[in-house]
Design a protein around this nucleic acid. Structure first.
Lengths: 234, 234
DNA sequence: CGCGTATTTGAGCATCATCAAGCGCCGTGG
DNA sequence: CCACGGCGCTTGATGATGCTCAAATACGCG
């Protein structure tokens, strides 16, 4: 894992993340306390048991939050996309582990610096609260999916979620709004959807033969967005 | 729905709820802005679409938060027990509806009063943040259940959850730690567990014939707590 | 007591899981 | 350049868990 310093001024996600609650001078003053780390795909960032002593923003890449049963059954309980936040401010133990799905950059702060922001910057706290409340809602949407949706509905819903949150390579083109690199393997999709790998594969095939989507390697193209929405029951 | 005023000093959940972040004088000053409402079982408190203009603490009873698909499939995505909080501070629309499971009391605040607390009382905001982060974790635990646990494991887990959170009628006795009134019908359990009503019934029967639990009407007695834990895979 | 609703019970079935090959892509090394 | 091997993905056959439909029973309440 590499570390380096980077100016907050160059940060691609500054306007969309927690940091936007900070005045510029405060941000620059904080800059020396932050460090960028880069992880390859499939690397453990933080185990479940001991809580890490730092907090992070995700400037790029996708992070999986997983939870497991003692017998090995695993469920992905959350995905972090660029601009999302990683950390457990008030707890000493986290129930879930964090792992990279794709290559990931993290912008990390030490616990102490972060907690001081929470003390001193009311806007920062309020924004974190707002983000956390959104996180609750996102979790609840997923509970509806896990509890009540069929396999096809689940897969379609996940594709729409990823389409919404994956940054397109070329933002100008029309295509970029329909096309993205899958950040998850079949196994990871299954772990997020509460399905088995074979079921995910079969449902993707169904969507392909119905002309709703197309895949070229890891690239996914949504041919018929309306149909995908219908099948997702959103 | 009845409304009446009640002194915060008499509140049964004051020490465990958001209010404990407030100084006594602030609390008393807030008191006139709060009103108690009582609801019978099975009553809609707030629909999904329009966000309510008030916030509430639950001093007694159990509230269901439900989310539905257009075709009627329903999932309970959260339960509120005494001392829990109900409301959507920053959103104008809520994804889920709130309904009473049992008879419920709510201690309600107008939006304006609540938002002012968020502005002026940093400790209050911090405590709400802490509670919200816990809510995220609770949701994630439930995702693991919905995605990966078997029917029996789900039912056992729910019984343990209710045992933990239902206040015993007589706190002194040993029995009260093993026994409680079920706040949910079979159908509601099913909606929370992502199962069908018949499946819940059958799994309860299995637990009964195995001597793990016993039911007398709506009262549930846990005969073998260790066995229940084992079957819950917790 | 009798009705309406909640719950239980049973029989058959569908969806998704499991088990087992087989395929394709890609990097390695001959 | 191609054979080899590994891994991720696909495909097929079979089976189990939980769903559906249907009916019986229990329960609460007038």
């Amino acid at each position: 894992m590499m570390r380096r310093r980077q100016s907050c001024l160059d940060c691609a996600v500054r306007g969309r993340t927690l940091c936007r609650a900070l005045a510029l001078e405060r941000l620059l003053q904080l800059n020396p306390n932050s460090s960028r780390r880069r992880y390859p795909p499939g690397r453990l960032i933080a185990a479940a048991d001991p809580v890490e002593d730092w907090f992070a923003i995700v400037p790029s890449g996708v992070v999986k939050l997983t939870q497991s049963l003692s017998d090995g059954r695993q469920q992905i309980v959350g995905l972090l996309f660029p601009s999302d936040f990683l950390g457990q401010p008030f707890k000493r133990a986290s129930p879930c582990a964090a792992e990279t799905a794709t290559a990931v950059e993290l912008c990390c702060f030490e616990r102490k610096a972060f907690m001081r922001l929470l003390q001193e910057e009311a806007d920062f706290t309020r924004l974190l609260l707002e983000r956390t409340l959104e996180e609750v809602d996102i979790g609840r949407d997923w509970m509806l999916l896990l509890g009540r949706k069929s396999a096809e509905e689940r897969v379609a819903t996940l594709l729409l979620l990823m389409l919404r949150r994956m940054p397109g390579h070329d933002h100008g083109s029309e295509l970029s709004q329909r096309q993205f690199e899958l950040p998850l393997s079949r196994g990871e999709m299954a772990d997020y959807l509460g399905l088995r790998i074979e079921t995910v594969s079969r449902q993707l095939k169904r969507l392909k033969s119905a002309g709703v989507i197309e895949t070229r390697g890891r690239t996914l193209v949504v041919q018929d967005l309306a149909a995908l929405r219908t099948r997702a029951k959103e």
